[in-house]
């Protein structure tokens, strides 16, 4: 009997001990008010336009920073031409929207090492002109997809570093996932603006950005 009473009291005392209030140091509440906006362009894409002969592409990025979250919007255009014995043209536009979580806590620096998610869509058309013999003589074959749509998701790793004053540079490594194309006819599309080659359903990409920072809050 004494053993039962002693055990019961011991258990009650344990619960009572856990129920006591502990003093927790107060954490400052995160301020979600936008504190900066960065606007820039994709240097790799613009570089390919300047130095490449078969592609025209540009992309701009807007990043709105709120606490450690960056809301990202990418807008781009792309025109590709391929083929030695034929002409394949692909042209269209795309956008990506998503968010990056910045692991650099200092808002003042504007630097970023972040992981992010994106949803992307492209609207485009493609065309193939080919003259060849498919067993019925040398004939011209024209195939066209006039209303193509594609969508995919991305996981990104981003790095942005201050170069001088409010000028920043940095890269984004992308893992492009679950790509889907709508509107394909006889011609299987070779490129998707903003995504790249369609051979793989999941792909990777690397982009380099030059950005200007506009602080929104007074220091």
């Amino acid at each position: 009997m004494w053993r039962f009473i002693f055990s019961s009291l011991f258990c009650i005392s344990l619960f009572t001990a856990f129920g006591q209030d502990q003093e927790v140091p107060l954490k400052p509440k995160p301020v979600w008010k936008p504190h900066e906006i960065k606007i820039g362009f994709n240097a790799i894409r613009s570089g390919r336009t300047v130095f490449g002969s078969d592609i025209l592409t540009h992309e701009m990025q807007v990043a709105l920073a709120m606490h450690l979250l960056n809301i990202i919007i990418d807008l781009g255009i792309e025109e590709n031409t391929h083929g030695k014995t034929y002409t394949y043209e692909n042209r269209g536009s795309y956008f990506r929207v998503g968010g990056d979580w910045n692991f650099v806590k200092s808002k003042k620096s504007g630097n970023a090492i972040s992981l992010g998610l994106r949803y992307a869509r492209a609207e485009f058309k493609d065309q193939l002109d080919y003259t060849g013999d498919q067993g019925f003589g040398i004939l011209d074959y024209d195939f066209e997809n006039s209303n193509l749509k594609a969508r995919w998701a991305e996981v990104t790793f981003n790095l942005r570093g201050k170069v001088v004053s409010n000028f920043y540079m940095g890269f984004t490594a992308r893992w492009q996932l679950i790509r889907k194309i709508n509107g394909e006819g006889q011609l299987e599309t070779f490129d998707i603006p903003g995504f790249g080659n369609t051979k793989r359903r999941n792909s990777t990409a690397f982009d380099y950005y030059l950005m200007w920072r506009i602080p929104l809050l007074k220091q």
């Binding site: 391929h82 083929g83 394949y88 193939l128 006889q186 299987e188 070779f190």
Partner: peptide, 8 residues
């Protein structure tokens, strides 16, 4: 009929 580009 299907047409694709295997490699440019």
């Amino acid at each position: 009929t299907n047409v694709s580009i295997f490699d440019p």
